[in-house]
């Protein structure tokens, strides 16, 4: 016994280490013991109350990470708000389009603008509807605000629209108030003009210009724009009437194709007349 005590005393560090390791392992193995858990709950509670008492001390590292998290949250919320605003604008636009489509006397096909040019002389827009959807060349295209142009070319899935803001586009038009008629064109200087309206017929600023029944391609009464200025053309008998287009060509993103087929008999007759005229002119020149 004495020898064992001497041995333990000699190697007391090892003996103590072994003893304490054993106690630790026992504690680990009994960590789920209910009594031990209760004791720990109480002690953790006491420590937590002490911690709470000192919680007023600012923690710069925690503040930094909190700032970082708040900045990220702010960024995410800003993005969300921006998306929601865009969705709201779209929803408003779609609502207006839907209402217009329901009330319109013509058969309309909704389309999305997938490409457009508006700063050239011959501007066009590409719609995501084509012959597969019933679109045909020459069909008018409009928004709920007014005329956009007419289909100049198409394939199965897409249509190219020759816009009103195109120097090749000429639309027979009529003033809604005065009933005077003329031709609406887009001039190279970037102005929409109604031509061939006699100076003798007085025009009013603010009068709405709509498509007239003279056109083969466009159904009548589609808004084109509003008279913004009336200028006298020097040396002619006509006024130069400046029109503010009803459609904003810079921002329109959706449009309707008016499923309107021109009167074939009228079209043929007018085309044959034009061809006959040009043949006669050529014959006259050759003689």
């Amino acid at each position: 016994m004495r020898r064992l005590a001497d041995l333990l005393l000699r190697y007391k560090e090892y003996a103590l280490t072994l003893l304490l390791i054993s106690i630790s392992l026992i504690l680990i193995s009994t960590s789920n013991n209910q009594q031990l858990r209760s004791f720990r709950t109480i002690s953790v509670g006491i420590v937590a109350s002490v911690q709470e008492a000192f919680s007023w001390i600012p923690n710069p590292f925690a503040l930094e990470s909190e700032n970082h998290a708040l900045r990220q949250l702010n960024k995410d919320l800003s993005t969300q708000a921006m998306q929601l605003r865009e969705e709201a604008v779209k929803a408003e636009k779609y609502k207006a389009m839907l209402e217009f489509k329901e009330k319109a006397p013509m058969k309309l096909l909704a389309a999305e603008v997938v490409g457009k040019t508006i700063i050239q002389l011959r501007n066009t827009a590409t719609l995501n509807v084509g012959s597969r959807d019933g679109v045909k060349e020459g069909m008018p295209v409009m928004t709920e605000r007014g005329l956009v142009g007419r289909v100049a070319g198409l394939n199965d899935h897409y249509s190219i629209v020759q816009l009103l803001v195109n120097v090749d586009t000429k639309v027979p038009a009529r003033m809604l108030g005065s009933r005077n008629e003329g031709i609406v064109t887009w001039e190279p200087d970037g102005v929409m003009v109604m031509k061939y309206v006699p100076t003798a017929l007085k025009q009013k600023k603010g009068d709405t210009v709509v498509t007239s029944s003279q056109s083969i391609y466009f159904p009548e009464n589609i808004p084109i724009g509003v008279i913004s200025d009336v200028q006298e053309e020097q040396g002619t008998l006509f006024d130069r009437i400046i029109i503010e287009p009803a459609t904003n060509f810079a921002t329109f993103e959706e449009a309707f194709v008016v499923l309107h087929n021109p009167d074939e008999a009228r079209l043929k007759l007018e085309q044959s007349l034009i061809e006959g005229e040009s043949r006669r002119n050529q014959g006259g020149r050759s003689r």
Binding site: L20, I21, I23, S24, L27, I28, T30, S31
Partner: peptide, 10 residues
């Protein structure tokens, strides 16, 4: 876990 710190620190 009770005992883990005790063991490591011993």
């Amino acid at each position: 876990i009770p005992g883990t710190n005790a063991l490591a620190k011993v």
